[in-house]
Amino acid sequence: MGFFSKFKEGLTKTRDALMGKVESLISFGRKIDEEFYEELEEALIMADVGVNTVMGIMDDLRSAAKKQKLTEAEELKPVLKQILVELMGEDKAELSTNRDGLTVILFVGVNGVGKTTTIGKLANQFKAEGKKVILAAGDTFRAGAIEQLEVWGQRAGVDVIKQGAGSDPAAVIFDGIQAAKARKADVLLCDTAGRLQNKANLMDELNKIYRVIRREMPEAPHETLLVLDATTGQNALSQAKLFGEATGVTGLVLTKLDGTAKGGIVIAIRKELEVPVKMVGLGEKIDDLQPFDPKDFVDALFAE
Rank of each mutant, 00 (worst) to 15 (best):
K77P: 07
G144Y: 09
E9G: 07
F7V: 15
A64H: 08
G281Y: 00
F28V: 12
T12L: 14
V227Q: 00
G89M: 09
K127Q: 11
T53G: 05
D287S: 12
M88Y: 00
K92T: 14
E304P: 09
L252E: 01
F3T: 14
Q197P: 12
I286S: 06
L242G: 00
I265M: 04
K271F: 15
I173W: 10
A170R: 11
V227N: 00
D288A: 15
A236V: 11
D100L: 11
A185K: 07
K256T: 10
E74G: 03
N124Q: 13
Q178F: 02
V85M: 15
I83R: 02
I177P: 08
N201E: 15
K66F: 08
I269A: 15
K199W: 05
L252G: 01
L40R: 01
D33Q: 10
K132I: 06
T224P: 06
R15E: 11
D287T: 13
A268L: 10
A180M: 00
A180H: 00
N111T: 01
L102F: 10
A246K: 14
V54W: 01
I213R: 10
L273R: 03
E86Y: 03
G10C: 07
A65P: 08
M55H: 11
A136F: 01
K31S: 15
G157A: 12
L135D: 12
P169M: 05
T12A: 15
N124R: 13
E94I: 09
Q197W: 03
N207R: 11
F302P: 11
L40N: 00
K181C: 06
A240P: 11
A230Q: 04
E284L: 10
T232M: 05
V298Q: 02
G114T: 00
K66G: 03
I267T: 12
S63D: 15
E72V: 07
G50V: 01
T118K: 00
G56Y: 03
K278W: 08
G244W: 11
A193G: 12
A240F: 05
